[in-house]
């Protein structure tokens, strides 16, 4: 699974971190960092992360 975050849209709300902590995290500066190619077993939580992103900045590409 390939995850793409539009960092021009991202405003560091961090909602994705709650939904998919194995894939998204906030770094020490409070900016979003993420795993771009997570295991397919994490699909459900990554989909939830995409759903709850206030800026709808997360895209899942198969």
């Amino acid at each position: 699974m390939k995850v793409v975050v539009d960092m021009n849209k991202c405003q560091d709300h961090g909602q994705c971190v709650f939904a998919a902590p194995d894939v998204f995290r906030m770094d020490d500066d409070g900016r979003l960092a993420y795993v771009p190619d997570p295991d397919d077993a994490l699909r459900a939580e990554v989909e939830e992360a995409a759903d709850v992103c206030p800026l709808q900045a997360i895209r899942i590409e198969d």
């Binding site: 560091d12 709300h13 961090g14 971190v17 709650f18 906030m26 409070g30």
Partner: peptide, 12 residues
């Protein structure tokens, strides 16, 4: 700012 928002998240 971001620090305060991050602090709130820790209580979630």
């Amino acid at each position: 700012g971001q620090a305060a928002v991050g602090a709130a998240a820790r209580y979630r």
